[in-house]
Amino acid sequence: MATNSMALPKTPTTTRIKRRFEELGSRGEMGLVAFLTAGDPSLEATESFVLTLAGAGADVVEVGVPFSDPVADGPAIQRSSERSLRAGTTLSGVLDLVVSIRRKSDVALVLFSYYNPVLQMGIERFARRAASAGADGALITDLTPEEAGDYRRTVQAHGLDTIFLAAPTSTDERLARIAEASSGFLYVISRTGVTGARESLPEDLPALVRRVRRVSRLPLAVGFGISLPGQVSILGGLADAAVVGSALVQEIERAASVDAAREALGMRVRILKHAGKAGMSRREPGA
């Protein structure tokens, strides 16, 4: 595979993402990254959900752009994307949502999307609008560093972090390439498969995290299958943050109203964040 050997300018300014991970590091505290599908059940509801997540202690919020064909996602996020698309959500609408959230909150925001909606908007236009809206980074699920040359240059030129994914199947050579392409934090996929809450953590996760640490000094956020306080607590000894998505999306699906969903989300995030703090004894402050 041809690689892009051209040296790229790293994000010029300190982003909210970097600052937040530095604060967490200095306190020896586990971070929590929360994912929601924007527009499920409506963009107004998502705005109130994000403010609740931030208030309950989420360190980074991933704002998911719904896509018709979410191949990396399990049933919970598939259903949530379908609800959002039925409500008429577009990438443009999600960017307007970020503007609105940013007026009310300083929480770090990552736009989380499949590639095609971004490609159709145009990468330059997407990056410009995302930056001016107040987003801090972007993650494209089906874009690997090999295909991301233009995207990376353009998005980083607008001062946004580019977050890429590392998987259990990634070779050491690929992990180095992924680390080189990433800024802000690195998203470590805990297991092969798709998103969705699971009971346990995979046994080979510590080995994967060690392999990633060898090639990157970025904070590591572990996701896919994380939903329980016990999992977050164990991760505290291993990673810098836990990513929770499907479990939050399911709270929204189960709730009888937007108010009830908001309450459930706040509760869930407070519990998980507390578990992260409880696990901090296993970490060295400032490490």
């Binding site: 595979m1 690997t144 295909e147 690929r174």
Partner: peptide, 14 residues
């Protein structure tokens, strides 16, 4: 053409 897949699938494609 190209290869636009989630990272997990890159290794098996290679």
């Amino acid at each position: 053409g190209g290869r636009y897949v989630p990272e997990t699938l890159v290794a098996p494609l290679e």
